[in-house]
């Protein structure tokens, strides 16, 4: 229990730091939001007036805490670029990115674990020999390029979906999911390759432990040892990795949403950074980072529950 309490405290501290970093990061980027808003003809007085009305003339830390408390109350501020509440700008987009990320994540988990085990089981068979280097190749394809290849193959040649025509959730749930499957594939393929490799390495490492030798000495076959003893232990580091890979997945979605024209947070994020629309960018960044931090927290608690030995200071 003490462990959980301590971890929760750490979680809150991390979340605070995350928000502060995000806030400061946007403070130091060159490019003033007021010039983006005012356009080519304006006087310094008008810029100053706008800065004041946006509250940009106040001290950074005053603004940070103002923003933080408002954010905690659920008030994310007003978008500079769209002059509407950030909440409204994000409406609908959070769900899209969440579904896309979740789909990719489920794909990663459900494919990579059996694949990783199979890679060990059939290590010396043709399967293992083909999959290992293939894994390396897939890991080396940049996401945007994989996205383009998938669009060509599944969209233009096989016509399984219409690239560029995203189907909103409210129009057709199945249509939406089918469309999202392809960007999810583009995101998850490299991750599957990575995770399967990691699991394979973890299992192979675990196989050198003493208890495995004991299990062998009891007359178990290699596969039985793996199945009954090794996998459980070998999965531990992979669980942590899978929790953390959510951050990667969201990062990939920034690119993939662009390639597949998916109206999610990723495109909005890139656009709001380049338009210096900080209220929007900040809200998205802090939300994404919070999800990641919370996932890590859950993974820590989970790992600890499964295996109390893991109690790293």
């Amino acid at each position: 229990m003490h462990y959980v309490l301590k971890k929760t405290g750490v979680l809150l501290a991390t979340l605070l730091l995350v928000s502060l970093f995000a806030f400061l990061a946007f403070e130091i980027i060159p490019g003033d939001p007021t010039t983006m808003l005012l356009g080519s003809d304006y006087t310094p007085e008008r810029a100053e007036a706008l800065r004041q009305s946006l509250g940009l003339d106040r001290n950074v830390f005053v603004r940070f805490f103002d923003w933080l408390f408002a954010f905690l109350r659920g008030d994310m501020g007003t978008s500079y670029s769209y002059s509407m509440p950030v909440r409204e700008v994000l409406r609908g987009k959070i769900a899209v990115t969440a579904v896309l990320s979740l789909m990719s994540w489920v794909l990663v988990v459900s494919v990579s674990v059996p694949l990783g085990i199979a890679l060990v089981r059939y290590q010396n068979k043709a399967f293992g020999r083909i999959c290992n280097p293939l894994n390396q190749v897939i890991m080396a394809i940049p996401t945007f390029f994989l996205g383009i290849l998938l669009t060509y193959v599944f969209g233009l040649v096989l016509k399984l979906f219409t690239p560029g025509r995203f189907i909103p959730f409210r129009e057709s749930v199945s249509g939406c999911l089918v469309y999202l499957l392809f960007p999810a594939l583009a995101i998850s393929l490299p991750k599957i390759a990575k995770t399967a490799r990691l699991l394979r390495a973890s299992i192979l490492g675990e196989m050198k432990q003493d208890y495995v030798l004991t299990a062998y000495s009891h007359g178990n076959s290699r596969w039985l040892v793996i199945k009954n003893h090794v996998v459980r232990n070998a999965l531990l580091p992979v669980v942590t990795y899978l929790a953390m890979s959510l951050a990667d997945i969201v990062a990939s979605s920034i690119i993939v949403e662009q390639v597949f024209v998916v109206p999610g947070l990723g495109r909005l994020l890139v656009a709001s950074i380049s338009n210096r629309d900080y209220p929007v960018a900040l809200s998205i960044v802090v939300m994404i980072a919070s999800v990641v931090v919370v996932m890590n927290y859950l993974a820590d608690i989970l790992t600890q529950a499964v295996d109390p030995r893991v109690r790293l200071s």
Partner: peptide, 22 residues
């Protein structure tokens, strides 16, 4: 380590975008 955790919480591509902007 807390600093570390909070930095790793940001998607790396995003960090890269911000750093390159700077």
């Amino acid at each position: 380590m807390r600093l570390n955790d909070s930095i790793t919480a940001f998607p790396s591509l995003l960090l890269a975008l911000v750093l390159i902007a700077v």
